[in-house]
Design a protein around this nucleic acid. Structure first.
Lengths: 345, 345
DNA sequence: TGACATTATTGGAACGTTCCATTTATCAAA
DNA sequence: TTTGATAAATGGAACGTTCCAATAATGTCA
């Protein structure tokens, strides 16, 4: 419809009878311009329907104001929550972050990161896709753009990380299960190419050892970190010679899947088989039976990550402390009652 | 760390022993440059770790390649699915969309849209926040940037819309319930400031009239479009003098909430009270009881919307046909058996 | 009133790219 | 060879902003 070329700072200057420099000052909210002139300029801006050209501005300015968050799976409510936490922090800092989804696809991730960089992102928060090659972030590190990993991390990278205390969380959950008297216990879901997996499994194994189980006694089933993956795990577990009676799942999605699978086998989660999840997504408490899970304060970690990049940008550094968030086990129905009625709660 | 100023096209030119124009041509994949020269240039690009400055380019070029999707609530899996559908379409077109969340907040939405525009967005897909003022998009229309509404729309706006056939979907669901013999039936959730609400409620009422019910016979409870809202609705409904025996819910979130609420009242959804949702999010089939819902092909609509903006951008027009997507009722457990055992099915 | 300090305003260069009009290299045919 | 045509490469202006140095306007005080 509107064919007229978009208005620039010069058009405004003309309309308000001032120079482009003055308009620029007004745009930046400088107090070097007399209030009534500023008003006149603002009015002109309004009148011509001017839209600021950030691209042009960034050409001169040191910093752009775009911050990108690259997440591996937006359909997972867990990451959506993370994104929302970050947004909150950014909002109060007056910046609008751009979110991009990689759908757990390293190739897509590459494209997305490239695009963010080209757009002149001032900072990046990334939860890397599964299977990201080790050198994927070298390029970015070289550019000096502040970047932090959230929730997930790369094997040995100097990029700061914001994540929950996976090891401790898993140990907490495992101890709870073991304390209930389960002796054949399994770990469901995830795969060893994820650092998070190693941490969680590590914590799990640690707790098992504390209770005198050998590594060979605990069964571990890798799978997708999805509902489907959880169903696969339970199928395999129940088919084994000595089926476990309890499982800690890599995340809540896997746990939901496992519970679904149990029902399919005619077993009731909680009563016949104890299930514990990880992440404590909102659904966990509403599910039937409600899911015992390790709460990690997702949104809080998101906010934290946002603050860290913001600070990195401001102090133009590329390094920061890692932040390992506290975790706690929230016990609900899915982990069932004590097995060994002799023991305490 | 890296303090060296970032490389420009000129640095590459120097390194490759050509002119900046040649580098520019290579960057654009032009075939006007001799293959071996192109290779030399590409090598130089690689060597210096050059990152393309899209801002600078857009200053000269007509179109940028950023497309924004502004969604009202990313934590709602329904909208996350929508976003993913769009991404798929954009990906195969080689563009990286930027997602921004408004969290159902019109003020935030304003900021987000402004930012997208300033960034030079070539096109926009928006599902407007609840309570968006009627003139919120006038600014954007004036700029001539292609924009389409997805899932939600504004009262009377000429902006093209991609949405499911809400009226028909609601009618379908209501007829199913009425056909089962329910005569006291309610509509749960949503509020009249949403066009979608009016459409769904309209279809619902239409079906009720077909079955001889008066408008006064059907009970309507407005609420948040969330789980919490659903719980409120069921509380109110059960407290009424003539409680309904079935409800169509504004969306699946409300339906989940209603089912939760029912349990709290000692009633079993499906058996004691029929619940039908809308949108058919992935959880619907996994819930216990599984939720009968109106499927709208969310991701498909997302793709559709993406294609439409893409076409609008290409043909530099600001108008397009609306797209009303087909819907169908997927019957599961939550709507229970027939009431009147004399009747069919 | 003049001189000076202070406050407001301004012109021009620069940012990194694209695109057009040219120039230069290459190749075929005469 | 020379010529002409075609292919390849190039210099410079332009895009819309910021920032600096410089100028113009205003205010203060003797």
């Amino acid at each position: 419809m509107t064919k007229r070329p978009k208005a620039t700072i010069l058009d405004i200057a003309r309309a308000a009878g001032v120079s482009k420099s003055t308009v620029s000052l007004v745009l930046q909210g400088s107090d070097l311009v007399r209030p009534d002139t500023a008003d006149r300029v603002r009015k002109a801006i309004e009148d011509v329907g001017y839209v600021y050209n950030r691209g042009a501005a960034n050409l001169r300015k040191a910093h752009s104001n775009v911050i990108g968050m690259v997440v591996n799976d937006l359909t997972n409510p867990f990451y959506a929550e993370l994104a929302v936490g970050m947004e909150r922090a950014f909002q109060s800092a007056g910046v609008v972050p751009f979110i991009a989804n990689t759908g757990e696809n390293p190739v897509r991730q590459e494209e997305v990161l490239k695009s963010m960089l080209e757009q002149g992102a001032a900072g990046l928060i990334v939860s890397p896709a599964r299977g990201t090659p080790p050198d994927a972030f070298r390029r970015i590190e070289a550019t000096g753009v502040p970047i932090v990993f959230a929730m997930r991390r790369m094997p040995d990278s100097r990029i700061p990380v914001v994540a929950p205390d996976n090891r401790r969380g898993a140990a907490l959950a495992a101890r709870h299960l073991l304390g209930k008297g389960h002796s054949r216990i399994a770990f469901f879901g995830g795969s060893s190419d994820l650092v998070v997996y190693q941490e969680r499994l590590g914590g799990f194994r640690e707790a098992c050892r504390e209770y005198g189980l050998h590594d060979s006694d605990v069964q571990v089933f890798e799978s997708d970190t999805s509902r489907k993956g959880g169903m696969t795990c339970i199928d395999l577990a129940l088919a084994s010679e000595t089926p476990p009676t309890a499982a800690l799942c890599f995340n809540d999605a896997v746990a939901f899947g496992a519970m679904l699978g149990l029902r399919r086998h005619g077993l009731e989660p909680g009563r016949d088989f104890a299930v514990v999840g990880f992440d404590d997504v909102v659904e966990a408490q509403h599910y039937v039976p409600s899911l015992t899970s390790v709460a990690v304060d997702t949104a809080g970690l998101g906010e934290r990550a946002a603050h860290i990049v913001l600070k990195m940008i401001q102090s133009r550094t590329t390094s920061a402390e890692n932040h390992i968030g506290a975790v706690n086990l929230v016990v609900r129905e899915s982990c069932g009652p004590d097995r060994n009625s002799a023991r305490g709660v």
